[in-house]
Design a protein around this nucleic acid. Sequence first.
DNA 1: ATTTAACCCACTACAGCACTAGGTTATATC
DNA 2: GATATAACCTAGTGCTGTAGTGGGTTAAAT
Lengths: 157, 157
Amino acid sequence: MRLSTKGRYAVTAMLDLALNGNDGPVTLADISENQGISLSYLEQLFASLRAKGLVRGVRGPGGGYYLGRAADEISVADVICAVDEWVELTRCNPRPSSADIQRAMTHSLWDDLSQQIYIFLTDISLEDLVRRGLEREDRGGKGAKVANLLGLNDQAA
Amino acid sequence: MRLSTKGRYAVTAMLDLALNGNDGPVTLADISENQGISLSYLEQLFASLRAKGLVRGVRGPGGGYYLGRAADEISVADVICAVDEWVELTRCNPRPSSADIQRAMTHSLWDDLSQQIYIFLTDISLEDLVRRGLEREDRGGKGAKVANLLGLNDQAA
DNA sequence: ATTTAACCCACTACAGCACTAGGTTATATC
DNA sequence: GATATAACCTAGTGCTGTAGTGGGTTAAAT
Protein backbone atom coordinates (compact mmCIF):
# COMPACT_ATOMS: atom_id res chain seq x y z
CA MET A 1 0.00 0.00 0.00
CA ARG A 2 1.23 3.44 -0.83
CA LEU A 3 -0.26 6.84 -0.15
CA SER A 4 1.05 9.84 -2.08
CA THR A 5 -0.15 13.09 -3.58
CA LYS A 6 -0.90 11.17 -6.76
CA GLY A 7 -3.44 9.07 -4.91
CA ARG A 8 -4.89 12.17 -3.32
CA TYR A 9 -5.30 13.83 -6.71
CA ALA A 10 -7.08 10.75 -8.01
CA VAL A 11 -9.41 10.54 -5.03
CA THR A 12 -10.30 14.22 -5.02
CA ALA A 13 -10.92 14.09 -8.77
CA MET A 14 -13.21 11.11 -8.27
CA LEU A 15 -15.00 12.97 -5.48
CA ASP A 16 -15.47 15.80 -7.95
CA LEU A 17 -17.20 13.35 -10.27
CA ALA A 18 -19.29 11.97 -7.41
CA LEU A 19 -20.40 15.47 -6.41
CA ASN A 20 -21.00 16.95 -9.87
CA GLY A 21 -21.78 13.93 -12.03
CA ASN A 22 -25.52 14.12 -11.51
CA ASP A 23 -26.17 16.77 -14.15
CA GLY A 24 -24.26 15.34 -17.07
CA PRO A 25 -20.63 14.29 -17.47
CA VAL A 26 -17.80 16.32 -15.96
CA THR A 27 -14.98 17.45 -18.24
CA LEU A 28 -11.34 17.15 -17.28
CA ALA A 29 -11.05 20.86 -17.98
CA ASP A 30 -13.56 21.48 -15.18
CA ILE A 31 -11.71 19.21 -12.76
CA SER A 32 -8.45 20.81 -13.79
CA GLU A 33 -9.80 24.20 -12.81
CA ASN A 34 -11.57 22.95 -9.69
CA GLN A 35 -8.66 21.00 -8.29
CA GLY A 36 -5.79 23.03 -9.70
CA ILE A 37 -4.28 20.04 -11.49
CA SER A 38 -2.91 20.25 -15.01
CA LEU A 39 -5.13 18.86 -17.74
CA SER A 40 -2.57 16.48 -19.14
CA TYR A 41 -1.73 15.07 -15.74
CA LEU A 42 -5.41 14.43 -15.19
CA GLU A 43 -5.53 12.65 -18.53
CA GLN A 44 -2.79 10.33 -17.34
CA LEU A 45 -4.59 9.64 -14.08
CA PHE A 46 -7.90 9.06 -15.84
CA ALA A 47 -6.26 6.71 -18.31
CA SER A 48 -5.42 4.49 -15.31
CA LEU A 49 -8.86 4.96 -13.77
CA ARG A 50 -10.50 4.14 -17.08
CA ALA A 51 -8.40 0.99 -17.48
CA LYS A 52 -9.79 -0.24 -14.16
CA GLY A 53 -13.35 0.67 -15.10
CA LEU A 54 -13.62 3.28 -12.37
CA VAL A 55 -14.65 6.01 -14.80
CA ARG A 56 -16.47 6.08 -18.13
CA GLY A 57 -15.54 8.62 -20.77
CA VAL A 58 -17.98 10.29 -23.16
CA ARG A 59 -16.45 11.86 -26.23
CA GLY A 60 -17.42 14.89 -28.21
CA PRO A 61 -19.07 18.17 -27.25
CA GLY A 62 -21.01 17.92 -24.00
CA GLY A 63 -18.85 14.93 -23.17
CA GLY A 64 -16.71 14.26 -20.14
CA TYR A 65 -16.48 11.60 -17.48
CA TYR A 66 -18.95 9.67 -15.35
CA LEU A 67 -18.15 7.35 -12.48
CA GLY A 68 -17.81 3.82 -13.82
CA ARG A 69 -19.96 2.44 -11.01
CA ALA A 70 -22.18 3.84 -8.28
CA ALA A 71 -20.29 5.94 -5.75
CA ASP A 72 -20.99 3.40 -3.02
CA GLU A 73 -19.46 0.67 -5.18
CA ILE A 74 -16.09 2.44 -5.53
CA SER A 75 -13.72 2.22 -2.60
CA VAL A 76 -10.86 4.58 -1.84
CA ALA A 77 -8.54 1.59 -2.16
CA ASP A 78 -9.83 1.00 -5.70
CA VAL A 79 -8.91 4.53 -6.72
CA ILE A 80 -5.50 4.60 -5.07
CA CYS A 81 -4.54 1.18 -6.40
CA ALA A 82 -5.57 2.18 -9.91
CA VAL A 83 -3.09 5.04 -10.12
CA ASP A 84 -0.29 3.75 -7.90
CA GLU A 85 0.35 0.26 -9.26
CA TRP A 86 2.77 -0.95 -6.56
CA VAL A 87 4.50 -4.17 -7.49
CA GLU A 88 6.21 -4.77 -4.13
CA LEU A 89 8.65 -7.46 -5.18
CA THR A 90 9.97 -9.45 -2.25
CA ARG A 91 12.73 -11.46 -3.78
CA CYS A 92 13.92 -14.58 -2.02
CA ASN A 93 17.57 -15.50 -1.95
CA PRO A 94 18.29 -19.16 -2.69
CA ARG A 95 20.66 -19.40 0.29
CA PRO A 96 19.30 -17.04 2.95
CA SER A 97 21.64 -15.58 5.56
CA SER A 98 20.47 -14.69 9.06
CA ALA A 99 20.16 -11.12 7.80
CA ASP A 100 17.79 -12.37 5.10
CA ILE A 101 15.71 -14.06 7.77
CA GLN A 102 15.57 -10.89 9.86
CA ARG A 103 14.53 -9.00 6.78
CA ALA A 104 11.83 -11.53 6.00
CA MET A 105 10.51 -11.26 9.56
CA THR A 106 10.16 -7.49 9.64
CA HIS A 107 9.03 -7.40 6.02
CA SER A 108 6.22 -9.82 6.73
CA LEU A 109 5.16 -7.76 9.73
CA TRP A 110 5.04 -4.70 7.48
CA ASP A 111 3.04 -6.63 4.92
CA ASP A 112 0.52 -7.45 7.64
CA LEU A 113 0.16 -3.78 8.43
CA SER A 114 -0.05 -2.87 4.77
CA GLN A 115 -2.81 -5.43 4.36
CA GLN A 116 -4.73 -3.95 7.29
CA ILE A 117 -4.54 -0.47 5.82
CA TYR A 118 -5.70 -1.84 2.49
CA ILE A 119 -8.71 -3.54 4.05
CA PHE A 120 -9.48 -0.36 5.94
CA LEU A 121 -9.52 1.66 2.72
CA THR A 122 -11.51 -1.01 0.93
CA ASP A 123 -14.34 -0.43 3.40
CA ILE A 124 -14.56 3.30 2.67
CA SER A 125 -16.46 4.23 -0.49
CA LEU A 126 -16.63 7.57 -2.26
CA GLU A 127 -20.28 7.66 -1.19
CA ASP A 128 -19.20 7.28 2.45
CA LEU A 129 -16.86 10.25 2.18
CA VAL A 130 -19.45 12.44 0.48
CA ARG A 131 -22.23 11.53 2.89
CA ARG A 132 -20.04 11.92 5.96
CA GLY A 133 -18.97 15.32 4.68
CA LEU A 134 -22.55 16.42 4.07
CA GLU A 135 -23.66 15.21 7.48
CA ARG A 136 -21.66 17.92 9.18
CA GLU A 137 -23.59 20.59 7.32
CA ASP A 138 -26.61 20.44 9.62
CA ARG A 139 -26.43 24.09 10.46
CA GLY A 140 -26.08 26.71 7.73
CA GLY A 141 -26.04 24.39 4.75
CA LYS A 142 -23.29 23.84 2.25
CA GLY A 143 -22.39 27.47 1.77
CA ALA A 144 -21.70 28.13 5.43
CA LYS A 145 -19.54 25.07 5.70
CA VAL A 146 -17.45 26.00 2.69
CA ALA A 147 -17.17 29.57 3.90
CA ASN A 148 -16.00 28.22 7.21
CA LEU A 149 -13.44 26.05 5.48
CA LEU A 150 -12.10 29.06 3.68
CA GLY A 151 -12.05 31.14 6.84
CA LEU A 152 -14.53 33.58 5.39
CA ASN A 153 -17.07 33.86 8.16
CA ASP A 154 -15.97 37.33 9.19
CA GLN A 155 -15.27 38.85 5.82
CA ALA A 156 -17.11 39.53 2.59
CA ALA A 157 -17.35 36.75 0.07
CA MET B 1 -0.93 11.45 5.95
CA ARG B 2 1.61 9.97 3.62
CA LEU B 3 2.82 6.45 3.17
CA SER B 4 6.03 5.85 1.22
CA THR B 5 8.99 3.51 1.23
CA LYS B 6 10.69 5.92 3.62
CA GLY B 7 8.01 5.25 6.21
CA ARG B 8 8.29 1.54 5.58
CA TYR B 9 12.03 1.63 6.16
CA ALA B 10 11.49 3.48 9.43
CA VAL B 11 8.83 1.06 10.65
CA THR B 12 10.77 -2.08 9.74
CA ALA B 13 13.88 -0.65 11.41
CA MET B 14 11.85 0.05 14.54
CA LEU B 15 10.47 -3.48 14.40
CA ASP B 16 14.05 -4.67 14.24
CA LEU B 17 14.71 -2.81 17.48
CA ALA B 18 11.56 -4.20 19.05
CA LEU B 19 12.54 -7.76 18.11
CA ASN B 20 16.27 -7.60 18.94
CA GLY B 21 16.50 -4.91 21.59
CA ASN B 22 16.15 -7.30 24.52
CA ASP B 23 19.79 -8.37 24.61
CA GLY B 24 21.55 -5.00 24.48
CA PRO B 25 21.31 -2.12 22.02
CA VAL B 26 21.11 -2.73 18.26
CA THR B 27 23.66 -1.04 16.01
CA LEU B 28 22.69 0.70 12.81
CA ALA B 29 25.26 -1.51 11.10
CA ASP B 30 23.19 -4.54 12.13
CA ILE B 31 19.95 -2.98 10.91
CA SER B 32 21.68 -1.93 7.72
CA GLU B 33 22.62 -5.54 7.05
CA ASN B 34 19.31 -6.97 8.23
CA GLN B 35 17.11 -4.63 6.24
CA GLY B 36 19.38 -3.93 3.29
CA ILE B 37 19.32 -0.18 3.88
CA SER B 38 22.43 1.99 3.63
CA LEU B 39 24.02 2.98 6.93
CA SER B 40 23.98 6.72 6.27
CA TYR B 41 20.35 6.67 5.22
CA LEU B 42 19.52 4.90 8.45
CA GLU B 43 21.42 7.58 10.31
CA GLN B 44 19.21 10.21 8.69
CA LEU B 45 16.06 8.31 9.58
CA PHE B 46 17.23 7.74 13.15
CA ALA B 47 18.11 11.41 13.53
CA SER B 48 14.40 12.11 12.95
CA LEU B 49 13.30 9.26 15.20
CA ARG B 50 15.66 10.44 17.92
CA ALA B 51 14.36 14.01 17.67
CA LYS B 52 10.87 12.67 18.44
CA GLY B 53 12.15 10.53 21.33
CA LEU B 54 11.19 7.30 19.59
CA VAL B 55 14.70 5.86 19.93
CA ARG B 56 17.54 6.33 22.41
CA GLY B 57 21.16 6.14 21.19
CA VAL B 58 24.06 4.71 23.19
CA ARG B 59 27.50 5.77 22.04
CA GLY B 60 30.79 3.98 22.06
CA PRO B 61 31.70 0.30 21.70
CA GLY B 62 28.83 -2.00 22.54
CA GLY B 63 26.52 0.90 21.86
CA GLY B 64 23.59 1.17 19.48
CA TYR B 65 19.92 2.04 19.71
CA TYR B 66 17.07 1.16 22.06
CA LEU B 67 13.42 1.99 21.62
CA GLY B 68 12.71 5.30 23.31
CA ARG B 69 9.55 3.92 24.93
CA ALA B 70 7.97 0.51 25.40
CA ALA B 71 6.94 -1.12 22.14
CA ASP B 72 3.27 -0.87 23.08
CA GLU B 73 3.67 2.87 23.62
CA ILE B 74 4.92 3.55 20.09
CA SER B 75 2.34 3.66 17.33
CA VAL B 76 2.95 3.15 13.64
CA ALA B 77 1.67 6.69 13.12
CA ASP B 78 4.35 8.01 15.48
CA VAL B 79 7.08 6.40 13.41
CA ILE B 80 5.74 7.44 10.03
CA CYS B 81 5.06 11.00 11.13
CA ALA B 82 8.58 11.29 12.56
CA VAL B 83 10.27 10.65 9.23
CA ASP B 84 7.71 12.04 6.80
CA GLU B 85 6.98 15.50 8.17
CA TRP B 86 4.10 16.37 5.86
CA VAL B 87 3.21 20.07 6.00
CA GLU B 88 0.04 19.85 3.92
CA LEU B 89 -0.42 23.52 3.18
CA THR B 90 -3.96 24.38 2.22
CA ARG B 91 -3.74 27.97 1.21
CA CYS B 92 -6.87 30.05 1.10
CA ASN B 93 -7.43 32.63 -1.57
CA PRO B 94 -8.75 35.99 -0.33
CA ARG B 95 -11.38 36.10 -3.06
CA PRO B 96 -12.45 32.51 -3.72
CA SER B 97 -13.91 31.56 -7.08
CA SER B 98 -16.41 28.72 -7.47
CA ALA B 99 -13.45 26.58 -8.45
CA ASP B 100 -11.83 27.39 -5.11
CA ILE B 101 -14.99 26.32 -3.35
CA GLN B 102 -15.09 23.04 -5.24
CA ARG B 103 -11.48 22.51 -4.31
CA ALA B 104 -12.16 23.25 -0.66
CA MET B 105 -15.05 20.76 -0.69
CA THR B 106 -13.10 17.82 -2.07
CA HIS B 107 -10.02 18.80 -0.13
CA SER B 108 -11.91 18.73 3.14
CA LEU B 109 -13.36 15.34 2.27
CA TRP B 110 -9.84 14.09 1.64
CA ASP B 111 -8.70 15.56 4.94
CA ASP B 112 -11.44 13.60 6.68
CA LEU B 113 -10.15 10.42 5.11
CA SER B 114 -6.57 11.31 5.92
CA GLN B 115 -7.59 11.86 9.53
CA GLN B 116 -9.28 8.47 9.66
CA ILE B 117 -6.19 6.73 8.36
CA TYR B 118 -4.09 8.59 10.90
CA ILE B 119 -6.33 7.51 13.78
CA PHE B 120 -6.26 3.98 12.47
CA LEU B 121 -2.44 3.94 12.51
CA THR B 122 -2.35 5.60 15.92
CA ASP B 123 -4.15 2.58 17.32
CA ILE B 124 -1.56 0.11 16.04
CA SER B 125 1.60 -0.18 18.16
CA LEU B 126 4.86 -1.89 17.31
CA GLU B 127 3.98 -4.37 20.03
CA ASP B 128 0.70 -5.15 18.25
CA LEU B 129 2.51 -5.92 15.02
CA VAL B 130 5.09 -8.13 16.69
CA ARG B 131 2.54 -10.02 18.77
CA ARG B 132 0.17 -10.48 15.88
CA GLY B 133 3.05 -11.82 13.80
CA LEU B 134 4.14 -14.23 16.50
CA GLU B 135 0.60 -15.46 17.01
CA ARG B 136 0.62 -17.13 13.64
CA GLU B 137 3.58 -19.25 14.62
CA ASP B 138 1.50 -21.74 16.58
CA ARG B 139 2.77 -24.66 14.59
CA GLY B 140 6.48 -25.12 13.96
CA GLY B 141 7.75 -22.07 15.81
CA LYS B 142 9.60 -19.12 14.40
CA GLY B 143 11.95 -21.07 12.17
CA ALA B 144 9.20 -22.80 10.26
CA LYS B 145 7.38 -19.54 9.74
CA VAL B 146 10.44 -17.80 8.38
CA ALA B 147 11.25 -20.77 6.21
CA ASN B 148 7.73 -20.61 4.88
CA LEU B 149 8.08 -16.92 4.20
CA LEU B 150 11.20 -17.60 2.21
CA GLY B 151 9.54 -20.45 0.36
CA LEU B 152 12.07 -22.90 1.75
CA ASN B 153 9.85 -25.66 3.01
CA ASP B 154 10.78 -28.03 0.22
CA GLN B 155 14.45 -27.24 -0.12
CA ALA B 156 17.58 -27.28 2.01
CA ALA B 157 18.26 -24.28 4.19
C1' DA C 1 -17.40 21.39 -41.84
C1' DT C 2 -16.34 22.79 -37.43
C1' DT C 3 -15.93 22.43 -32.68
C1' DT C 4 -15.58 19.92 -28.59
C1' DA C 5 -13.36 16.92 -25.53
C1' DA C 6 -11.80 12.34 -24.89
C1' DC C 7 -7.70 9.77 -25.90
C1' DC C 8 -2.69 9.08 -26.93
C1' DC C 9 2.45 9.76 -26.95
C1' DA C 10 7.07 11.73 -26.21
C1' DC C 11 9.76 14.65 -23.80
C1' DT C 12 11.18 17.68 -19.69
C1' DA C 13 11.65 20.37 -15.07
C1' DC C 14 11.53 19.35 -10.47
C1' DA C 15 11.25 17.18 -5.63
C1' DG C 16 12.13 13.79 -2.58
C1' DC C 17 14.26 9.36 -1.96
C1' DA C 18 18.33 6.77 -1.13
C1' DC C 19 23.06 6.72 -1.26
C1' DT C 20 28.19 8.16 -0.95
C1' DA C 21 31.84 10.25 1.42
C1' DG C 22 33.70 12.69 4.33
C1' DG C 23 33.92 14.32 9.02
C1' DT C 24 33.31 14.86 14.94
C1' DT C 25 32.22 13.34 19.27
C1' DA C 26 31.44 10.04 23.30
C1' DT C 27 32.69 5.80 25.49
C1' DA C 28 34.32 1.18 26.38
C1' DT C 29 38.60 -1.59 26.22
C1' DC C 30 43.56 -2.51 26.27
C1' DG D 1 46.52 7.47 27.39
C1' DA D 2 46.08 5.17 22.85
C1' DT D 3 42.77 2.75 20.19
C1' DA D 4 38.61 1.08 18.45
C1' DT D 5 33.75 1.43 18.21
C1' DA D 6 29.58 3.40 16.95
C1' DA D 7 26.64 7.29 17.53
C1' DC D 8 26.15 11.75 15.47
C1' DC D 9 26.71 15.41 11.81
C1' DT D 10 27.15 17.71 7.07
C1' DA D 11 27.57 18.29 2.06
C1' DG D 12 26.94 16.62 -2.17
C1' DT D 13 24.80 13.40 -5.84
C1' DG D 14 22.37 9.93 -8.81
C1' DC D 15 17.85 8.20 -9.36
C1' DT D 16 12.96 7.62 -9.44
C1' DG D 17 8.45 9.24 -9.65
C1' DT D 18 5.72 13.48 -9.79
C1' DA D 19 3.72 16.87 -12.40
C1' DG D 20 3.73 19.43 -16.43
C1' DT D 21 4.27 20.88 -21.56
C1' DG D 22 3.31 20.24 -26.21
C1' DG D 23 2.26 18.13 -29.60
C1' DG D 24 -0.94 14.96 -31.87
C1' DT D 25 -5.67 11.55 -33.27
C1' DT D 26 -10.16 10.13 -32.91
C1' DA D 27 -15.33 10.22 -31.81
C1' DA D 28 -19.44 12.77 -31.55
C1' DA D 29 -22.49 16.91 -31.25
C1' DT D 30 -23.75 21.30 -33.64
